[in-house]
């Protein structure tokens, strides 16, 4: 499985773990709910840790955990749900999150430019052939009118 990270196509080294699956060895991401419940165990995990956010999740609940996390995924159930854009902004600007912030799920390649501006630096494509499209879409505009993360 390949993704885009910092404008390059790279292999996804993470495992995205469902709430009822056991945690394997290696780098793992879990839902916010699971993170909150099992944090005391997860922090002893040998690999890197990541959290997957649904648009309804309150980002600020991660305020105390930001330094432990090396991946946060913004999972789009629907491209029209724009809450993830504000979640990204809050993570970068308010919580000072500096590691990988990845869009995943049902977003459109045409939203990649906006996502990059609010601080998303990695993109999990819906389909393999979207990879070059997303890369191109990151350059849709060379100018902008307002301040955001980037």
């Amino acid at each position: 499985m390949q993704i885009i990270k910092d404008k390059h196509i790279v292999d996804d080294t993470w495992q995205h773990i469902a709430d009822d699956a056991t945690i394997p060895a290696g780098d793992v991401s879990v839902s916010l709910a699971r993170w909150q419940q099992e944090k005391h165990l997860l922090i002893h995990h040998k690999g890197k840790l990541g959290v997957r956010l649904h648009p309804a999740d309150a980002v600020t609940e991660l305020a105390g955990d930001i330094s432990r996390l090396e991946l946060i995924e913004l999972d789009f159930p629907d491209f029209a749900d724009g809450r993830s854009f504000s979640q990204a902004w809050l993570l970068r600007e308010r919580l000072g999150y500096g590691a990988e912030l990845r869009a995943t799920g049902q977003y459109m390649p045409d939203q990649a430019f906006y996502l990059a501006r609010v601080g998303v630096n990695a993109f999990n494509p819906e389909k393999f052939k979207d990879l070059p499209v997303i890369l191109a879409k990151l350059n849709d505009f060379t100018v902008n009118y307002q301040r955001s993360v980037n």
Partner: peptide
């Protein structure tokens, strides 16, 4: 007008 145009955070509102 300029601030609202292509605002990256607020283009997919409710």
């Amino acid at each position: 007008r300029q601030w609202t145009t292509l605002h990256p955070e607020f283009d997919y509102l409710p």
